[in-house]
Design a protein around this nucleic acid. Structure first.
Lengths: 98, 98
DNA sequence: TTGACATGCAAGCAGTCACTTGCCTAACGT
DNA sequence: ACGTTAGGCAAGTGACTGCTTGCATGTCAA
């Protein structure tokens, strides 16, 4: 099972990746080093490679867009894959979609 | 990391468990055997023990309430742990909470 | 009571995951 | 040109995960 939905859920399964999303939601265009610093500040102690790999996984899930600018790798958050997820597992009697 | 939030996200990381939630959202009080049958019907081929372990994990995450009735084990869905999850990673400029 | 049905428990196994380690490439400043 | 800065690649490792296997328990019907 390797469809898009599965990638998103598996990406969210790790606390470090969720913390990365927490940092990314505030501002687009943060570099890898910037993210490492802010993660360390948030109490998450992960190496640069570890964080880079987490970002690769988030990118594979479509949650993060990666672009190059000079020697920097900039990261933008994309929350659109989360939209269908938010409406899932709502009881039929609790649905409020008019 | 073993807090409640982490349990929920890890519980959602498995496609079989998500399929179980899909089946559970329709009706409360389904037995283990009933769930096995409906899972098989949905194209998910998992043994009874496997499904039972998945349900245990969902129960540990607070997503499923388990109760006994005679020789049956009945399962009720509880979506309240999903509520905070739905409002997460929403851009500050996209927030619409009045 | 006896047998069938619904489920529980626990050890073991193979695959996956997160992380490290070590070295390499590319872009900037001086 | 040279060193520094930002990041890339890939193999290896320990722990965790999902699943199986085998047997045990408890409940009901006849």
């Amino acid at each position: 099972m390797d469809d898009a939905e599965d990638l998103v859920f598996r990406a969210l399964a790790d606390p470090t990746r969720r913390a990365l999303l927490d940092v990314l939601v505030e501002r687009d265009g943060q570099t890898l080093f910037e993210l490492c610093t802010r993660m360390a500040g948030a109490g998450v102690t992960s190496s640069r490679q570890a964080i880079s790999q987490h970002l690769d996984l988030l990118a594979a899930a479509g949650l993060v867009r990666v672009r190059r600018e000079g020697r920097y790798r900039l990261h933008d958050l994309d929350t659109t894959p989360l939209a269908p997820l938010r409406e899932r597992w709502v009881r039929p009697d609790e649905r409020t979609d008019p």
